[in-house]
Amino acid sequence: MSNRAFTNAGSNAGMTTSEPLIVVPLKHYGRWCWAALTLLLAVAAMNSIVNNANFEWSLVAHYLTSATVLAGVWMTIKLTVLSLLLGFAGGAVLALMRLSSNPVLVAVSWTYTWLFRAVPLLVQLFLWYNVAALYPHLAINLPWVGLVWSAPMNSIISPFSAAVLALVLHQAAYAAEIIRAGILGIGSGQNEAAKALGFDRWQTMSRIVLPQAMRTILPPAGNEVIGQLKTTAVVSVIALQDLLYSVQIIYQRTYEVIPLLMVATLWYIAMTSVLSIGQYIVERHFGRGVAAQGRAPWEYVNDFLGFKQKRGKI
């Protein structure tokens, strides 16, 4: 203990320089064979899709930007954005309630999550759409003040509001679990360091814990976002005119079922692709300070072709 040797301590983090080595990528012949085979299959599939007259691509092109379809796309976007924003806001509140030290809040949050994850979204959708049968009137009654506001339920519940309600309440339950897991993943050391520096609870949560939790929250949340966009298609069952319902309206008139389903397919692919790119950019932003960062698809391509990799931040 007493005669521990210290050599050049303090400067030992310095770099050691050595002769530059010339790095030659390995040649992987097997890899090229598999790639060629896969490409061949892909080309064949593409060929059959493009040349199969049943797809009626000219009709697809015609309907792709028709007013009805665009209105449907817009509705799908609105439903997705609304249900995600409100759903994650609600999820954050539920997660904080669940992690609080107040047993009542914990129980309420737990029950909510349990209930809304137990009932299929489709069932919730029908229930909200028909809630007027349960409660014909909605009224706000304050003690001492009396009746503040009231309206017949049927004037409040439209297909749109029923859809938003069902999607938001459902999304909130899932978002709560994702956010809670992210927060729990941050060690107590971070909390204590923040406390010791004088941060209050809200400052610790918003400036230290949540930004770090985002790293674990974002990948599943991104999947939720993309999933939610596709999930909104269920609202067509209550005749809300989203993307799917719009093409249904058209093909029930014209019987051009396949081309119109292709129109919907192409729009869903386009929208989810945009979201995937957004997901990548956002994840990279919150990955600051972490050695292993997410990689973009083109980095894999570069890797595959054996191009030299730029060294990431270490």
Partner: peptide, 8 residues
């Protein structure tokens, strides 16, 4: 264990 904030 230092407890620096890793995202800063």
């Amino acid at each position: 264990s230092f407890n620096l904030f890793p995202h800063k």
